[in-house]
Design a protein around this nucleic acid. Sequence first.
DNA 1: GTATCTTGCGGGAGCGCTCCCACACGCTGT
DNA 2: ACAGCGTGTGGGAGCGCTCCCGCAAGATAC
Lengths: 368, 368
Amino acid sequence: MATLEEIARLAKVSRSTVSRVINNKPRVSANTRERVWSIIHQTDFHPNVAARTLASRRSHIIGLVMIQPYNVVTSEPFSAELVQHIAATCEETGYHLMLSLVSTSKPNTYGQIVRGGYLDGLIVYYACTDDSFVSRLQREKVPFVLIGHSPQADGIFTADMDNSTGAEAMARHLAGLGYTRIATVTGPAFAMSSRDRLEGFLKGLQACGLECPDRYIQEGDFTEGSAFLAMQHLLSQDPQPEAVFVANDTMAVGAIRAARMAHLRVPEDIAITGFDDTPMAQISEPPLTTVHQSSELLGRKAVEMLIGQLEPDRREGVVKQNVVLPVDLVVRESCGARLRLASREVKRSVKEVNQTERNPFTYCSRTR
Amino acid sequence: MATLEEIARLAKVSRSTVSRVINNKPRVSANTRERVWSIIHQTDFHPNVAARTLASRRSHIIGLVMIQPYNVVTSEPFSAELVQHIAATCEETGYHLMLSLVSTSKPNTYGQIVRGGYLDGLIVYYACTDDSFVSRLQREKVPFVLIGHSPQADGIFTADMDNSTGAEAMARHLAGLGYTRIATVTGPAFAMSSRDRLEGFLKGLQACGLECPDRYIQEGDFTEGSAFLAMQHLLSQDPQPEAVFVANDTMAVGAIRAARMAHLRVPEDIAITGFDDTPMAQISEPPLTTVHQSSELLGRKAVEMLIGQLEPDRREGVVKQNVVLPVDLVVRESCGARLRLASREVKRSVKEVNQTERNPFTYCSRTR
DNA sequence: GTATCTTGCGGGAGCGCTCCCACACGCTGT
DNA sequence: ACAGCGTGTGGGAGCGCTCCCGCAAGATAC
C-alpha cells in the first residue's frame, strides 16, 4: 500500500506538500494542488489512519458505549434505530463509529475503551441511574455526550427525549377522554427513562385532579412478559382500572394479551396505551395510542453535540449543554372515549395546562 | 497520559522490556515481569493504540460493513440481534468493532473503510446478490467473512443460515398437515436469503408431489406493509390458497392482517407461517409457526472465522470456508391440521425426505 | 537601494510503540 | 582453558504521518 512519501515522489513534491493538499491546508499553489490530487486519485491512495492518529492525536473515531445488559440493542427497537442513526450521522460527518458494549458485570473495560487514546470522544447510552462510568469520564476530561440524563448533570452534555412531558401528555389525554381510574405499568426502576415517564404521568394526572394509588403502579422491565404479569396484577385490583398507561410499546402488547386472557376488550372494557411508537404500535391489535419519539433526531443531536466539543470551529450556532427533544402523542385505537364524559373541571384543566406547555407536543392521529 | 518510556523509567527497565511484558513475550524474568506489571497497574497505563497499530500493523479492530438501505438494523430484529452478538463476541476475544454503514448510493466508502489500513479484517453483512464490494475485497486480499453467501463463493469465507433447508422443512410440514394449495410471499429478489427460501420451499413442495403455480408466488420486501398487499393479491386468486409460507415474521404479521380484513380466520380458514422466529412470532395472534435461526450462533461463527484468518495459531481445529448453520422449525398455532388428511404418499414422502436430511432440523413445539 | 512581508515549498523532529540486533552473563562441554 | 549456547536486557531504527521551522523568490514599502 502506498505512502505519502511515494505520492510525493510521483508528484515531484515533498511529503509536506502532499500532506497539506490532503488536509486542505493553505499555502499550496493551485497548480501543485491539482497535480497531487490527480496522483492520489490515480493510485487510490488513502493515508494510513494509525500514523495520522499518532501524529495528530485525532482519530476521527468516536465510541458508542452501551451498557449491557440494559441496552441490549435488540431488546427494544428504539435502541436499534438509534444505533443506526448515530452510525449514519457519523459517516456523514467524516467520523467512524466504534461500538462498545460495556458489561455491568465486568466494569474494567473502561481502560480498554478510553485510555488507549484513540477515541476522540464518546457517546454514552446509559439507561442506568448509577453513573460511576460517567463520573470517571468527567473526571478524566474525556469529551462525551450522555444520551439520557444524569442526576448531577452540571457541566456534562446530555441529549434526551422528553419522557416526562410525553407521559404527562398521555395522562392528560386519558383524563380528557373521561377515564378516572388510570393505572400504569412502569419500566425498571434503575432506568432514568422509567422514572421520568412515571413522574410525568403522575404530574399529568395531578394536573387533572386525579390520583394514582400505589396499587395502580406496577413495575415491569420493558419486556413483553413482564408486562403480562404486571397487567394481571392490575386486573386483580378492585376496582379494576379503566385505563393503563404502559411505559413502552413492547410491554403494551403484553398488557393487551393479559387483558384478552381476562376476557376484556380493548378499548371497550379497558384502554391501554404505550410509549415509543415502534412499528409494533401500528401492527398491534388494536393499534396503540402511544408517544412517538424520534430516534433519528436523538441520534443526530448526540453526534452533533459531540462534534461540537471536538471541533469548536465546526460548531453551528450556540450549543446547549442539555438538550431535551420533543415527543408527539399519537392517537390510535387502543383507547376510546369513555361513555361517561369527563367532568368540566378536568376538561378545563387539560386544556389549560396544555397551553402553558414548555415543550409543546402535537396531537396527531396517525392511523394506518 | 503515560507512555511506555515512563513506565520503563519507573520500573527501572528499558522500553523493550515493558513492551515484552505487556505483550506477554518470553525472555523476561519473573521478577522483572512482576515489577513492571505492578507499575502498570498503579498508573493505570494503557498503551497507545495508534502507536501500537502503526508499529505492529495490527489494530485489533474489525469492521462490520452493512449495506444500506437493505440491512437497516432496525428493519428486522434479526439484524439488530446479529450486530449485538458480533459486538459481544469481539469484546470477548479482545477485538473492537467498527460499525460501517455502506450506502449503495455512494459506493466510494470502500477506500475510506478499507484502504486506511487500520482494520484487521471485515465482516460483511451483505444481503444483496450484487457483489462488487466483495469481489474488490477478494482482489485486494483483505481478510473478510461474508455473512450470507455469494454466487462465486470459491476461496471466500462465508457463514450463513440454512435458509433453503428451513423453507424446505416448512413446505414439508405444511404438506404433511394436509394442505395442498400452498402459496408464498417471498422477500425481495435482490436478497440471497429470499432466493434461498423460495428455492427450498419449492423443493420441499416438489418432494411431496405438490406444485406451486406462479400466481401463488408474490414478492414482498420484508416489510409488514408489502406483505399486506402481497397477501391481498394471493387472496384474490381462484382457488384461494389454503396455506401461505411468508418469508419472514414481520411480513407474516402483515399477511395475517390482510387475511383478517378478508374475514378469514387463521388458521381455520387459512394457514400462515413465518421465518426468523423473532419475538413478534410469539406475541402475534395467533402465534406463528416459523423457522428459528440463531443470530448468536451466526454472529459468533462469523467472528470466529475471521479471527481464524487473522491469527492462524489461535484457530481451534479445522476451519471450514463455508459454514451453513442449522435452523429449527418451530410449530405454533398459525397453521393447524387440515380436515382432509394428507394422502398416504405425501406422508411417506415427508417422512422419507426428512430422514435423509443433511442438516437435520428439529421439530419443537415452542408455545408460550 | 535596502528592509519587510507574503507565498510556496522542503526537511527534520517527533508521535509511542514494535521488532531486530547487540551484548553481558552464567552455564555446559571439550 | 576457551568455545558454544541459552537467557535476560538495552538500544536503535523505523512504522507513516503532522507540524514546526527554515528558506528561496517575488511583491510591496520606504
